[in-house]
Design a protein around this nucleic acid. Sequence first.
DNA 1: CTATTTTGCTTCGAATTTGAAGCATGAGGC
DNA 2: GCCTCATGCTTCAAATTCGAAGCAAAATAG
Lengths: 171, 171
Amino acid sequence: MSDSPPDDDRPLDPRQLSAYFALSEVGSLLQHEVERHLRAEGGLSTVQFQLLASLDASDGRLTMTQLADGVVYSRSGLTYQVGLLEKAGLVTRGPSPDDERSTLVSITDEGRALVERILPGHIRVVRGRLFEPLSDEDLDRLGDIMTRVRDHMRARPPRSAAPRRRRGPAD
Amino acid sequence: MSDSPPDDDRPLDPRQLSAYFALSEVGSLLQHEVERHLRAEGGLSTVQFQLLASLDASDGRLTMTQLADGVVYSRSGLTYQVGLLEKAGLVTRGPSPDDERSTLVSITDEGRALVERILPGHIRVVRGRLFEPLSDEDLDRLGDIMTRVRDHMRARPPRSAAPRRRRGPAD
DNA sequence: CTATTTTGCTTCGAATTTGAAGCATGAGGC
DNA sequence: GCCTCATGCTTCAAATTCGAAGCAAAATAG
């Protein structure tokens, strides 16, 4: 870490490129297939399922902010989606006892039941599409890599633009 | 095909779960940051950039179907986006000489110039957010794994629903 | 204690996305 | 050559998305 090499402005080498493209593609494909399955199976979008799953995994109640933080999503979009879930009777919204501003979202029994019902099929999709061609060792490695990347991305909030404005930009 | 092991209906074990969640999260986070950057830098959405990059990488002209196949996208959405790109002067649309039905999309010089202008920053984002915490070995492994998964997903077109409806569902 | 700033959420309008339906051309069967 | 089906793309209406603006409660400053 003595002096940063000019690594930053070099093009990606072929290995990086191919890894990046493959990752993007897998992400998109997986997302689409999961979407399709959830829609067909339980009439839910991916986000809605993630929200219910988050609630189910935690203590059953989270604030809007906690939910939005887990799922990568805009605040207003979250309001909309939680509204739909509430209308469907899968969650309820109420004020937080601690903080009058916060809305506490709680999963209903019906919501839990739906998650339980959809989960097996969801898992089957993920297993069949994602994990099938991977060995145990691949799996460990993938988990390790992705966890590290995620922590890295979560650690540093994204600079909106101009990551290093040392020299005047040609803009 | 003698008797399928009950592997299929087991829940994902913790390693699989954590790998799956981390992968999803990284995918979402990366997509959002790329989106933000491209929008700020060149006024393009991710899809538009991918379309231009696809055209740039190939011979400069592709049919709508070829484009949609590369990017994971709906046909109608593609029509809309290509329409925007055309309006912006970055691509042109014309009939295919071979097939009267096909629309051939060509990138303009302006389009190429825009790609050239945005690419370095895009690469900087990807490098900084995705590759920074990875060693060379990680990189190779990641590329290998993702390539294999992608090929696997591309090979078998997704079953719309009901992968194995052997026993009457409790629906 | 009051003024200011911050935080949490919702509402709003504009842009995007999607699947279904529509239209025209190409390919096959007869 | 016709008739039927498949293919390539666009149009359409409805749903979803986002950021900006708005509003109320809480934290902070003085």
